[in-house]
């Protein structure tokens, strides 16, 4: 764990000593809050909840997660420091975990910057605090998933832009497949006489959007928890496999 901590600290410092983290945090705050306040009808709905806030999060993480995570391994590859890092007395897993946790911490700090919305809604009415907590938990998990996906992609390439584009595409697909219009389209379609309704259920099951929406309304299914944990775990495993393969 000590090694994880060392890598974590190194990565976190590197985030905050460059303008990257600040720019990303400011963009995230501005984007998520303006979408909620102006497009989500936060005030106009007259409902003391943060549903309009959390609704946009999967879409924002689609870009924000890859933007935070794109440098995790790509930067090491580009600088040629991957080998150096792995020759140190730390295992690939420790390095991966340390880097992932650092990126996740940036995301967590960013999300906690929006805590003002909670105080606003508490001052305006009597919201269901449990639902808000669940919404934040869902948001953290979606963000962590997008970072884990990016982590795996960044292990593959030395080009950060390539990593960003590929990761955004994967996150976009995972978000869109659970978007209700897409699900409805699948349900009303058939292929070679076979109705594709079952595909919609499968798509919901693998969709970041669907799981996030369920949590934003205060319902955490065991299915969702396992989905997020397994997605993050698999992506980190994949990163490990790629890193080991490259080293070999």
């Amino acid at each position: 764990m000590r090694n994880v901590w060392i890598v974590f600290k190194r990565e976190l410092i590197s985030y905050f000593t460059t303008p990257l983290a600040y720019v990303l945090i400011i963009i995230f705050c501005f984007l998520s809050l303006s979408l909620c306040l102006f497009f989500g009808g936060f005030i106009e709905r007259g409902d003391a909840s943060l549903s309009s806030f959390f609704y946009f999060h999967p879409w924002i993480y689609m870009i924000f997660g890859p933007a935070i995570g794109m440098r995790l391994w790509s930067e090491e590859h580009r600088m040629g420091t991957t080998e150096l890092l792995l020759t140190m007395p730390i295992s690939p897993w420790e390095a991966i975990l340390g880097k992932f946790l650092a990126a996740f911490t940036v995301l967590a700090v960013t999300l906690l910057s929006t805590i003002g919305m909670v105080f606003t809604v508490l001052s305006l009415g009597e919201p269901d605090v449990g639902v808000i907590f669940s919404g934040y938990l869902g948001s953290f998990l979606v963000g962590a998933s997008s970072i884990a996906i990016t982590c795996a992609v960044s292990a593959l390439t030395r080009n950060q832009i390539t990593c960003l584009l590929v990761s955004v595409t994967i996150c976009l697909v995972l978000t869109l497949v659970g978007f209700p219009p897409i699900s409805d389209l699948l349900r009303s379609s058939s292929f070679l006489g076979i109705k594709l309704g079952f595909l919609a259920d499968i798509c919901n099951g693998v969709s970041l959007f669907w799981h996030s929406t369920e949590m934003a309304r205060g319902l955490m299914r065991i299915q969702s928890l396992i989905y997020f944990i397994s997605l993050i775990g698999f992506c980190l495993f994949l990163t490990s496999v790629i890193i080991r393969s490259k080293r070999a």
Partner: peptide, 22 residues
């Protein structure tokens, strides 16, 4: 990957849930 998929399929059959609402 296969184990992950299977675990998720099994989890999707369960209706266990945590209800955070008041």
């Amino acid at each position: 990957l296969a184990i992950t998929v299977v675990v998720n399929i099994i989890a999707s059959l369960s209706s266990s849930r945590v209800d955070w609402t008041e």
